[in-house]
Design a binder for these strands. Sequence first.
DNA 1: CTGAAAGCGCTTACAG
DNA 2: CTGAAAGCGCTTACAG
Lengths: 368, 368
Amino acid sequence: MSDPFSVSSRTTPFKPATLSDVARAAGVSRWTAGRVLNGGQGNSRVAAKTALRIHEAAAALDYTPNRAALQLRGRRSHSFGLLIASGGDPLRASLVPYLDAEALRAGCSVLIGDAIGNPSVGPDQFDRYVEDFARRGVDGIFCAVHHWFQGDRRRLMTRHSNTVFYEDPGVPEAAYVTVDLEEAARQAVGHLVDRGRRRIALAVMTLARRPHLARLRGYQQELQARGLAFDERLVFNGAIVHLTFAKYSEQEQRWQFPWQTIDTAIDRLVVDARADAIVAHDDFWAAALLKRLRARGLRVPDDVAVVGYSNHYLADWTDPSLTTLDLQHAQAARTMVAMMTRQLADGPLPEDQRVVKISPKLIVREST
Amino acid sequence: MSDPFSVSSRTTPFKPATLSDVARAAGVSRWTAGRVLNGGQGNSRVAAKTALRIHEAAAALDYTPNRAALQLRGRRSHSFGLLIASGGDPLRASLVPYLDAEALRAGCSVLIGDAIGNPSVGPDQFDRYVEDFARRGVDGIFCAVHHWFQGDRRRLMTRHSNTVFYEDPGVPEAAYVTVDLEEAARQAVGHLVDRGRRRIALAVMTLARRPHLARLRGYQQELQARGLAFDERLVFNGAIVHLTFAKYSEQEQRWQFPWQTIDTAIDRLVVDARADAIVAHDDFWAAALLKRLRARGLRVPDDVAVVGYSNHYLADWTDPSLTTLDLQHAQAARTMVAMMTRQLADGPLPEDQRVVKISPKLIVREST
DNA sequence: CTGAAAGCGCTTACAG
DNA sequence: CTGAAAGCGCTTACAG
């Protein structure tokens, strides 16, 4: 062949050293070598100097155990499956590098299941991944798929008892990491009070789901702690307005944003209730508020301060840039992998340790 | 045990059917069953009615071949490795779901290597992934890591002859998919001319790298095609200004954006050279231009129109929203998987088929 | 057209 | 403390 590329790939066929090679080099049997290199408990049954000789031989031969063989014998695959729908949720996409980094530190690779919600796959992709990951013998599953995506979470949990979720999947017994929304609201309100705001509004997409009620609680708590009265006209619940919600367009792989809801929120909160600050549902709501407030000639932060939630990339690029709460994904990932590792070692976590709350961190920019 | 969770996971230990099970059920030998279900060529040597019986038995038992066993016998692992640094490059993160979806359609799973550049792993993580993926026996590697990240691309290619890159890695013989930057510049300029602009500027971070020279070529071509004179004062080369570049902060996992460079660009292009439109390096440059133009009292698009590049999420959220070029990641992913599949079947691609250019697509929003 | 045997690289009882 | 044998689930020469 004249192609140097193909020649090189043929003349250097990578042939890794096997346990037999190491055993031969060290002058011991395969059993002994296996015991020392891959065995768990039994290595105490091998003489220290023999073990040393074996380790040296292994290092010299650059030995790594063959994963396929280990797996065939029923050992751990040292891989995790990660269920995520980053196409439909850009916020969670940033969890991936952190989870991968943490898995790596735990000696595991990550199989990604990221096509959920993609128009080219079926709506049952979630369940297909669950099957495929099982067949590939992953040691556990991380599930960061938002609740609005189809998929049988219960079946996931029976199929993979070692599952750790990001945010409450609404399935009993589930282990998960979640951002403390109560704390998030408290921090936002506290910051705005410190900035001299007195008519602080809360604008959320819905109060129908439990997590958002936690937000309302935190909001009220902090107002009270700061000696401010609660005024229900300063709470905007998008769901009640009966306008269009954010809708994910699978065609365009983008969100169709409910701009009218934002205008209504401004009418109610700023025009009617004279709010001087708004704690927004998330950074997208906050960015939309920024645009629509400007369109009405209202200045941010002079007339109205705005706080977002999630610290998405866009927070640096809105005009003005956005004060928001960072979700601390690095910490979330670390916690998720730690929970997984514990589950792997000790089985299901005790009830009082199945839910871990992460405190978000306020990032102050120009909008407050 | 009183824990229903752990009980359930123990009472239903998932024990998949094996080839022997299928053979027994169909009343044939393992050889025959294997030939029919997993064998490639030899299944013509099995009687049609026998084959049918075997397929029925396999379906009834929900048989799937054991991957570990196949791999141990030296067959394909039906998995790909994906090298990416989405933490350091949010634009490419959106390739992941598309690549995963396409790999799925080709019957393969994706092992993700996304921790590159993450502060918690070493700078040699790229090379570590290359090793780990080899040991796990992936069938090929997709590499979408930006050139500024450390990592031995040559070694990657000798270790995995089936590698497909996103964007030119600068390694001879490499197969890659790339966005046609010449075409991108032509489309942007053409659109601006259609909008009545006559003093169209080009603002890029650098002209030192080959791809960006293609941009300049496309820009000049389209001006000429539209009968407009080329004015070198309307080309801004960020590298020549000797100001700070965008720098990725591993601490904050964010880009430190060179705002001064943007101000200088506005001085040169708009103030000095009276540009009425700017084709920007990317969406981040475009968003920065929007903010800085407004700060000077210049209106977009009335005074100056701005076109971005990449159609990042933020394009919807800038004020005004951004006209930009979509990178067509779905198409890029489809092409990458197709190239991989061909390489897998036929070996390295012929030289004239190793580089595939994707035409970006203009998305018109409010900034032009 | 079909079967019995060997072996991929490892572990796990079982003997010494 | 160490070794020979069997087997995880599959494929691949070999015989029939």
